[in-house]
Amino acid sequence: MPPGLLPPPATLTYGPNAQQTVECWDPVGSAACRGVAVLIHGGYWRAAFDASLMVPLADDLRRNQWAVANVEYRRGGNGGGWPATGEDVRAAVAAIAASSWREQHAGPMIGIGHSVGGQLALLAADLMDAVVALAPVTDVARTYRERLGEDAAAQFFGISPDEDPALYESASPSSQLPLAVPALVVHGASDQRVPVSHSVDFVASARTAGGHVDFDSPHSLDHLAAIDPSTRSWESVRQWMVHLGSQLPNLRTSSSA
């Protein structure tokens, strides 16, 4: 099958809303599965952006011996909001981990989130073996104050961080440290949608808190290029995932092992 034309996925439902679904693909070929990649898309919490953003990565991963779970969740305008959106992603990850589909695939479960998906992946890190955050939103109060994404935080949360600081803290990975699992943060120095300074500060804080966090900041990588599987940075991400899988102890084995 040509790249970009995925076969029909198995669909995992984790709630009653039409958005509460996960598309699951098996890896290509007969080689041993490297693990399960859980993809979480971005789009600044807006309903117009959905899990199809991650399909190119899904195709690349399954061709490189990864099983892939592509998460959809409720967003602004379709039943989302906070904490519902974050609860959706945690419920989706838990459903994947408990599914018979997961039991068929050996190896670690690694979350991969882009932009707001990076925020959501980091907040669900304790449910997985590791996390890759691509140009992540890590401090939503700062996102609000800097009016990023055309005032995306103001639109989604509907209240300012001064009015409800606890709400913003609960949605910010920077306020939920230390991370429970190893993480890789990839954030291009030329990113205009989420400034790289957010990740620089997050990584420093995460390391100070005792977390294992690797950081890569390619000079020319812009925001959307972070989810382009043809880039050198994405190849580095896959290499990191393989290396991590070889290092993690007590990895889950398939039920047939």
Rank of each mutant, 00 (worst) to 15 (best):
P178E: 05
A204N: 06
W45C: 04
W66T: 10
H187A: 07
R90A: 12
A152W: 02
A141Q: 02
Q239P: 13
A31V: 15
R252Q: 08
I96S: 01
H187E: 03
G4M: 00
A121V: 12
L122C: 03
D88M: 03
G79E: 01
I40S: 09
G113I: 06
H198A: 14
P83A: 04
A84T: 15
G43S: 03
G211K: 05
G79C: 04
W45D: 08
G76P: 10
L123A: 04
H219S: 14
P195Y: 06
P165F: 09
H212S: 15
A106W: 12
H187I: 00
P108A: 07
V22M: 05
H219Q: 14
L251M: 14
P7I: 02
A18L: 02
W234E: 01
E150K: 15
L57T: 13
D191C: 03
R62G: 10
V196Q: 15
G111H: 09
V137M: 06
V200P: 11
L123C: 06
P178D: 04
V186K: 01
Q247D: 06
A31N: 13
S220K: 15
A204D: 08
D88Q: 10
N64T: 03
R193I: 13
V89G: 12
F215P: 07
P8E: 03
S52R: 10
R75G: 09
R102M: 00
V242H: 13
D129C: 13
T21K: 11
A183I: 09
S170P: 07
D162T: 00
V89Y: 07
L57A: 10
D151S: 02
Q104T: 15
D60L: 00
P108Y: 06
V194E: 02
S233K: 11
W82A: 01
R75Y: 06
A154D: 10
V68S: 09
T13F: 14
Y14C: 10
L184A: 05
A97V: 12
P2R: 02
A98R: 03
V203R: 01
D191K: 08
G113F: 04
V38H: 04
Y73W: 00
F215H: 01
G113P: 03
I227N: 06
W66E: 01
T85A: 02
